[in-house]
């Protein structure tokens, strides 16, 4: 198989970097390197001579990479951002997944595309996992806030747990707000007054 491409992944989060590398290695690419610190980018490009550099679109260091790609001299390998005007679907898919790619001059599209598709799939998966993780964390936070608010009402108003919850629910309904927002306001106010 013609998969002897050198790929550099710029990613500060070691866990994410490992996931992307694993996905690429599973896809049959063996020369995959990760770079955590953008300050070493120029050196890394000279050392690994990557055919493709992958970077998260949300990574602010992209502007550093762009500049290097625009000023790198003929002796070093020039990489340019991957935008395929003939395959806008792929470009859009990459943007939606949040991955951007820089490829070495003259590399064939047939060799670039599988790498980008693999990266897109992995980025989509990581994004989904991240949003699930965020949702779980938020649910846990909300639960803690609700419990604290209930506790405050139970102490201050001498209510049962159930009555405390019903009071918050009624207040929320009357004011057209969510129960968690009422609980949050109560906790904030209690913190300020204590």
């Amino acid at each position: 198989m013609q998969q002897d491409l050198s790929i550099l992944v710029v990613e500060a989060d070691p866990d994410k970097a490992r996931q992307i590398i694993d996905a690429l290695k599973d896809g049959g690419w063996t020369q995959v390197q990760a770079l955590a610190q953008i300050s070493g980018l120029e050196r890394a490009i000279r050392r690994h001579e990557p055919d493709i550099v992958l970077i998260d679109m949300a990574n602010p260091d992209r502007d550093t990479l762009e500049h290097i790609s625009l000023v790198s001299d003929a002796k070093s390998r020039t990489v340019a951002m991957f935008v395929d005007q003939t395959d806008e679907d792929l470009t859009q898919a990459a943007v939606n997944a949040g991955v951007s790619a820089y490829v070495v001059d003259g590399l064939q599209m047939t060799r670039i595309k599988p790498v980008i598709e693999t990266a897109i799939m992995r980025f989509q998966m990581m994004r989904k996992m991240q949003s699930e993780l965020d949702a779980a964390k938020r649910a846990l936070e909300d639960r803690k806030t609700l419990d604290r608010a209930k506790g405050i009402l139970m102490r201050q108003r001498n209510l049962s747990e159930d009555a405390a919850y019903q009071l918050m629910r009624k207040t929320a309904m009357d004011q057209g707000r969510r129960v968690i927002d009422v609980a949050q306001a109560l906790v904030t106010a209690a913190d300020l007054l204590s």
Binding site: M57, N59, R62, D63, T91
Partner: peptide
Amino acid sequence: QPSWSALRDMLALGH
């Protein structure tokens, strides 16, 4: 936007 590159891509691609 996290970077000028990202802003440029999002504008050019219609996001």
